[in-house]
Design a protein around this nucleic acid. Sequence first.
DNA 1: GTGAACATGTAACAAGTTACATGATTGA
DNA 2: TCAATCATGTAACTTGTTACATGTTCAC
Lengths: 189, 189
Amino acid sequence: MNIRTLCLGILSFSDATGYEIKKMAEEGLFSHFVEASFGSIYPALTRMTDEGLLTCRSESQDGKPDKKVYSITDQGRTELKGALTIRPSKDKFKSEFLFIMLMSEHLDQNHVSAVLAQRARELEDELEMIRACGAQVTKPGGRFINGYGEAVIQAAHVYVSQNLDFSTTSEEPTGTQIDDPHLNVDAAE
Amino acid sequence: MNIRTLCLGILSFSDATGYEIKKMAEEGLFSHFVEASFGSIYPALTRMTDEGLLTCRSESQDGKPDKKVYSITDQGRTELKGALTIRPSKDKFKSEFLFIMLMSEHLDQNHVSAVLAQRARELEDELEMIRACGAQVTKPGGRFINGYGEAVIQAAHVYVSQNLDFSTTSEEPTGTQIDDPHLNVDAAE
DNA sequence: GTGAACATGTAACAAGTTACATGATTGA
DNA sequence: TCAATCATGTAACTTGTTACATGTTCAC
């Protein structure tokens, strides 16, 4: 999924400026699956307007530059649907944190412990953010992904908290004790 | 984290060829947090050898091109440690799947259901892979990230399985009933 | 006999980031 | 007075991907 699709998606819910789109990609629901900088958003909006996928109206404000509010057109909605009807590619997950953990044996143990403790705190903050943000979400799609984020981050938090000292002890990592009634494959060995 | 660090990390465990590095980044432990193509791996290895971070020995094989086996040098280990001692940046997670779910109200319900069912199956496969792969992992760092992956993917699987029909019913998404004893913040509302 | 796995490498290209340029307002 | 927020935009740059080039062996 590229920036164009992201912008179309956000604009399919409500009109917005480039600045607002960036904010939405940083905080709230959208922040879970994209990143976008001004350098990519502004050119994308301009180009899509030229192509007829968006319309743009300028609202002048005193002091600040004109605000350019973009709206999605029917053609834009068609484009968006097309982009969403392909089967989704694998989720992409990049984690420097996990990489550091994997390499922990080459590193200073104090550093590893500090990184773990820090990560536990970050996960708590994220969970709080998701819950706060979830209180404002009403549409089913939004509720679904909010719940998804909550489930996943919580699992990560439980796991990290239970294994804060993995690098200093020789104990087995504590696995999840949750049973998964939807998994019929008998893979646990 | 860039490809250079990834290669150094892999080579810090054992010598390998570019081809083998690519395979490791696709399957097994490393696959959880990176992607790499030949087009990025080969130039990176060449350059790092020029810079003294790696050494390279050629093993001729009949038929196939010479195998170039890379080893990390002390300088390379220093570089790796440096790259790992910075505090890890936020995990990056990109999901076309979640984006489609967010947009589900604009889409055909049958398509959304199919995507959900497909995702449940993919998560099962991934869980199986993680468990199979975990059986071979012995070092603490590896065990930690294997357990992390298992915890997170399982949570996602439970959640998706419980909400396969979210787009066709008006019910609240089923939240996680797991309690998190490590979370003292009282954020649940 | 066809495709996959083994094995390396380059050049063209795509995509997005960073840094810069500009400038008012508001709160600490 | 300094940083942050609002607000848009461009150019240079980085990074990495895709497609191509080359060639063997092995299993189906």
